[in-house]
Design a binder for these strands. Structure first.
Length: 304
DNA sequence: AAATGACACAACCGCCGATGA
DNA sequence: ATCATCGGCGGTTGTGTCATT
C-alpha cells in the first residue's frame, strides 16, 4: 500500500519507516541502544539502532514514555496546582512548565490542560485566557486542590503521593502501570519492557525526585517553586492569598479589585460552603470532576 | 449485547532556532 | 554569509478504552 509519502523515489528507507504505536520490540531496542550509547543524536540513533523510525519519533518515545524518570499515573493535586499557576504565568509554554514538575512531560501536561482544564472552560462557555476563568480557577479550583492535597497528605502518613497514585482507568499497554520509577539515571539500568510498559527493579527507586507531600508546610522533596506555591496558598480558607503576588501572574491579588470580583464578594463566595468533602465535586479521580458544575455556572454568571 | 459517544493519552506534524559545515 | 541538519516545541490528530444508551 503506497502512501503519498512513500512513493517518493528519493530514499527507499522512507518507504520502510514505521509509524503509529510502538511495539514491545521497538521499545526494547530503543531502550537498549540508549543504555549502551546514551541519549541524543536521534537521527543517528534511528539509523544505527535498527529501528525503522525517524529520529524525532525515537526521541519522543524516549522522552515521553521510556525514560526512567518519567512518572506515570494521575497528576497529584499539588502538581495540578502548579500547572495552573505556571500556566497563568507562562501560558502554553509546556516544556517550561514541565521543567517544574519532575517526571512529568510537556506532552502530559499539555494533554491535561486540553482534556481537563479546557473541557471545563468549554462547558462554562468561557475562554481559558479570560479573566472569568482565572477567577474561577482562583476561587474554586485552587482551594479545592489545596484541600485535596491536605487531605491526601494527612491520610498518607508520610507515604509518597506517587505511591498512592491511582492507576489510570485505561487498560492499554501504555497506561496500566503506575510503577515507581528511578529517580535518577545514575546508575542507570535499562528497563525491562513488558506488556505493562517499562519496569524497574524497585529497590532504591522510592525516593529522590518523586514528590513526597507529607505536609503542605513541610515539603522537603518538592522543588522550590512548588513549595512556594503551596505556602502561598496555605491560607486559602478565607481567600487571603497574601504573598501570592508574582510579577506577570494572572492570579495576582489585584484581580480582586475588579468590578467582577466585587460582585463575587457580594455573594460571599459561593465556595464558602463548598462542601469540600461533598461527593459532587470530588471523587477518586478528582481531576476529572473537580467541581460542582452548578456552582460554577452560578459563579461564572456572576462574573459576566 | 451492541452501538455510539466521550474521554485520555500517545504519536505525528510543521515550524523555528541553534549549530556546524 | 549561506545552507543543511538536527533537536525542541506547541498544535493537532489518531486510537484504544470506558461509559452510556
Amino acid at each position: 500500500m503506497s502512501t503519498t509519502k512513500s512513493v517518493s523515489s528519493s530514499s527507499e528507507d522512507d518507504n520502510e519507516l514505521r509509524r503509529g504505536p510502538w511495539t514491545l520490540e521497538e521499545d526494547n531496542l530503543l531502550s537498549q541502544y540508549i543504555f549502551n550509547n546514551g541519549e541524543g543524536r536521534w537521527n543517528l540513533l534511528a539509523k544505527r539502532s535498527g529501528l525503522k523510525r525517524t529520529g524525532k519519533s525515537c526521541r519522543l518515545r524516549w522522552l515521553n514514555y521510556l525514560k526512567p524518570d518519567v512518572k506515570r499515573g494521575n497528576l497529584t493535586p499539588e502538581e495540578q496546582i502548579l500547572i495552573l499557576e505556571l500556566h497563568s504565568k507562562w501560558g502554553n509554554r509546556w516544556s517550561k512548565i514541565a521543567q517544574h514538575l519532575p517526571g512529568r512531560t510537556d506532552n502530559e501536561i499539555k494533554n491535561y490542560w486540553r482534556t481537563r482544564i479546557q473541557k471545563q472552560a468549554r462547558h462554562l462557555k468561557i475562554d481559558t485566557d479570560s479573566r472569568e476563568f482565572q477567577e474561577i480557577v482562583r476561587r474554586f479550583w485552587m482551594p479545592r486542590l489545596l484541600q485535596k492535597a491536605k487531605e491526601s497528605s494527612s491520610s498518607s502518613s508520610g507515604m509518597s503521593i506517587q505511591n498512592q497514585a491511582i492507576p489510570l482507568p485505561l487498560g492499554g499497554v501504555s497506561h496500566s502501570t503506575v510503577g515507581t520509577m528511578p529517580s535518577s539515571q545514575t546508575p542507570w539500568q535499562a528497563p525491562c519492557m513488558n506488556e505493562a510498559g517499562p519496569t524497574y527493579s524497585d529497590s532504591e527507586h522510592n525516593n529522590g525526585s518523586c514528590i513526597s507531600f507529607c505536609d503542605s508546610a513541610n515539603v522537603p522533596n518538592v522543588p522550590q517553586h512548588f513549595g512556594d506555591t503551596i505556602n502561598q496558598f496555605h491560607d486559602f480558607g478565607n481567600f487571603t492569598y497574601d504573598g501570592y503576588r508574582e510579577n506577570n501572574s494572572a492570579y495576582e491579588m489585584d484581580t480582586f479589585k475588579t468590578p467582577n470580583a466585587r460582585v463575587a464578594e457580594d455573594v460571599r463566595y459561593p465556595i464558602g460552603d463548598c462542601q469540600m468533602a461533598g461527593a459532587n465535586w470530588v471523587n477518586n479521580d478528582f481531576s476529572c470532576s473537580m467541581w460542582n458544575m452548578d456552582e460554577l455556572w452560578q459563579f461564572s454568571k456572576l462574573q459576566k
